[in-house]
Design a protein around this nucleic acid. Sequence first.
DNA 1: TATCGACGCCAC
DNA 2: AAACGTGGCGTCGATA
Length: 279
Amino acid sequence: MTGRVHTSYSLTGAQTGRLSSTDPNLQNIPIRTETGRQIRDAFVAEPGHVILAADYSQIELRLAAHMADVPALKEAFAAGEDVHARTAMELFGEVNRDTRGRAKTINFAILYGISRWGLAGRLEISADEAQAMISRYFERFPGISAYINETTEHARSKGFTETLFGRKTWFPQITNSIQHIRQGAERAAINAPIQGTSADIIKRAMVRMGPALAEAGLPNVKMLLQVHDELVFELPEGDVEAAKPVIERVMAHAAEPIVHLSVPLGIEIGTGPSWGAAH
DNA sequence: TATCGACGCCAC
DNA sequence: AAACGTGGCGTCGATA
């Protein structure tokens, strides 16, 4: 008995290469509402220890900017700018609460394989209006349009997509004669290289983390959880300042030396007595 | 009593 | 008509 909750991870749980978590699933613990935050606060560190949460900041949008070669987005990430604001400026010519919010929604929609109906539903506008916004997005960021066309065509001709590290995901439904099934496969194929490359990167960071902490003289830092773009640690309070730069460096450079990204990978680190407080 | 799929909701 | 990606799980009703 450890007196703690223990999950099980499946290394092949998701088509894209993500981990999945069961019994219990610790990758969908609430956080967005006040009640959710209180639930995360129930995950506490041992006395004398703290929880450290390290997140990749907008990793999938950064990878999309790299893979689709979108100069405006790459510049924004390189400069540490607000990328959704930058997108709003490109699309609407001005940045305010409304345009930034809509730009953020469109950026997410791109990662998921955009459709006029999906965007229309999310923005509560007509499909025609959504199509006009997508066309505008493609005009401003032609690399995104090319990425979508090339990725779906590759999936159709070869049957699979690849991450930047060469890991394949297969799409047998990409040639299905039923339109909505085929289109669903196309959206998944657009997303898979992005989500999959993110999964590859954090796995590489996890493999390197133990040795890196050991070499840094930090044997008491324990890696507890992975939540897709986040690693959760428990460590003695006195180790926090030494551990932060090690964790940051391992995560930020995890793609190297196999893949050289044209955007930096930003890491956000927080600490506290609980998982909730570490965010 | 067990199993399966639809549904809704939680996360990234 | 149209729900945009990846998952797990609790509930409910149909079924064996």
